[in-house]
């Protein structure tokens, strides 16, 4: 393939990808029904409740997942042990699985004897808000481990070795050198995990149901409004979700670019 054709090939790919995403966003914003204006629906009480619920559950789930993902990803990146590839593949399963399967699995977990004990003595998950958090946590964790592991693997262990000779304990080297040097991966991992959490429908609806004003996250509310032919409201929420994703991803990229400089 000549240089010119190769450039055409690249341009076609880039153009098609951008057009697809722009079209998805444009058709949402372009929809203005006489009675069902999507922007008017954004101020309604149940919509605001869904937004609030989605924001805090996804942030909590992604934060908890980050706490677990950091040591998991670091261990997978640095330790060499028998069965490492198996563990690595296992942790990727939630990325590939349909979220509904994860939701079903979580329901089965909380139907088991230990799960029932937790439900009765610690906190209720099934058809409750904590169920949303745990579903989002599982999805977010897999994503964050993937991104963070790549970041830790990219970091030359020599930096940590030098830090040890400068007086750091293994944890000290990790805290003072590894984590700051992997800051971009940490932010990227958290945002990817958070995006996965806030956008989830299948796992959330399976374990927590779709109780209005209780377990109705933005994706669940979109589905519920579509089912009841409230197109404007569904689209308003869809636009909001799209805007949140776009703003967050843009901020992360700007932050990343600044760090690089």
């Amino acid at each position: 393939m000549g240089r010119r054709w190769f450039s055409v090939y690249l341009l076609c790919g880039l153009g098609l990808a951008v057009t697809t995403v722009v079209a998805i966003i444009a058709v949402q914003i372009g929809y203005v029904g006489d009675e069902d204006n999507p922007f008017r629906a954004l101020g309604e009480r149940d919509v605001l409740a869904a937004v609030k619920l989605s924001l805090w559950t996804s942030t909590l789930a992604a934060s908890l997942a980050l706490v677990v993902a950091v040591p998991t990803a670091y261990a997978l990146a640095r330790w060499r042990f028998r069965g490492r590839f198996l563990v690595d593949a296992l942790l990727d399963v939630p990325i590939v699985l349909s979220p509904i399967v994860i939701g079903i699995s979580l329901i089965l977990v909380f139907r088991s004897t230990p799960g029932q004990w937790i439900e009765h003595h610690v906190v209720r998950f099934v058809f409750e808000v904590p169920g949303i958090v745990i579903a989002q946590f599982v999805l977010s964790l897999a994503m964050q481990v993937r991104v963070l592991k790549a970041g830790f693997e990219d970091l030359d262990p020599r930096f940590e070795q030098v830090a040890r000779f400068l007086g750091c304990t293994p944890f000290g080297a990790f805290w003072r050198v590894t984590l700051p040097m992997c800051r971009a991966s940490l932010v990227a991992g958290f945002v990817m995990g958070w995006s996965r959490a806030i956008g989830d429908f299948g796992a959330t609806v399976t374990i927590a149901g779709s109780v209005a004003n209780k377990t109705e996250t933005i994706p669940v509310a979109i589905y519920n409004n579509l089912s009841t032919v409230k197109i404007g409201k569904a689209l308003g929420l869809a636009i909001l979700l799209t805007m949140i994703a776009f703003v967050v991803l843009t901020v992360v990229r700007v932050f990343g670019a600044r760090r690089e400089r």
């Binding site: 030359d156 020599r158 040890r164 000779f165 400068l166 304990t169 050198v177 700051p180 040097m181 800051r183």
Partner: peptide, 29 residues
């Protein structure tokens, strides 16, 4: 353990910490 040997190590690739200033690198240990 390395941190209790009180020796210094300088590898070929020097491994200066890119998230720190020159002064902070020198004062790190």
């Amino acid at each position: 353990p390395p941190e209790q040997r009180h020796v210094a190590y300088m590898p070929q690739d020097v491994a200066l910490f890119p998230h720190l200033s020159v002064r902070a690198n020198i004062e790190f240990g």
